[in-house]
Computed example of a mutant assay.
Amino acid sequence: MTRRPARLARAVSCALAAGTLMTTAACSGDGGTDASRARGVTAEQAAEQQRQTPSPTATLTTDGARMALITEADIEDDWTQVRDTEAENWHDSLLIGTVDVSDFLTAKAQAASCQRLINSLFDDDLLGRPSGASALRGFEQGDSRLLYQVASYERTDPEDSLHWMAKLPEKCDQFTVTADDGGQRTVQVIDIPLPDVGDAREGLRVTVRGSTGGENATLTLDVAAVRVGDDAITVTAGGLDGDENDSVEQAVKQGTPRLKDVLAGRTPTPNPSQIE
Rank of each mutant, 00 (worst) to 15 (best):
M1E: 15
M1N: 15
R3V: 13
R7W: 14
A9K: 02
C14Y: 09
L16S: 12
G19A: 10
M22N: 14
C27Y: 09
D34L: 09
A35L: 06
S36I: 15
A38K: 12
A38D: 09
V41S: 00
Q45H: 07
E48G: 13
Q50N: 05
Q52C: 05
P56Q: 08
T57M: 08
L60H: 06
G64A: 04
A68T: 04
L69E: 04
I70D: 00
T71I: 05
T71N: 10
E72P: 02
A73P: 04
D74M: 06
I75M: 11
T80G: 05
Q81H: 07
V82C: 08
E88T: 08
N89V: 06
L94N: 07
G97T: 13
G97I: 11
F104E: 07
L105T: 14
L105S: 14
T106N: 14
A107Q: 10
S113W: 01
C114E: 12
I118H: 03
I118V: 15
D124H: 13
D125A: 07
L127C: 03
G128D: 06
S131V: 09
R137M: 08
F139R: 06
F139Q: 09
F139G: 03
E140C: 04
R145K: 14
R145D: 07
Q149W: 01
V150T: 03
E154G: 10
R155W: 13
T156I: 10
P158F: 01
E159K: 05
E159W: 08
D160H: 11
S161C: 00
S161G: 04
W164A: 05
K167L: 14
K167Y: 10
L168R: 00
E170A: 15
E170I: 14
K171W: 00
D173S: 15
V187K: 01
I192K: 12
P193F: 14
R201F: 13
G203H: 04
L204M: 08
S211P: 05
A225V: 09
R227T: 08
R227D: 01
V228M: 06
D230C: 10
D230Q: 15
A232T: 10
T234K: 04
T236V: 15
A237M: 00
A237L: 01
G238P: 02
G242F: 12
G242Q: 06
D243V: 12
N245Q: 15
D246K: 09
A251T: 04
V252N: 02
K253S: 15
Q254Y: 02
Q254K: 04
R258A: 05
L259A: 00
V262T: 02
L263Y: 05
T267I: 15
P268N: 02
P268W: 00
T269K: 14
P270M: 14
P272L: 06
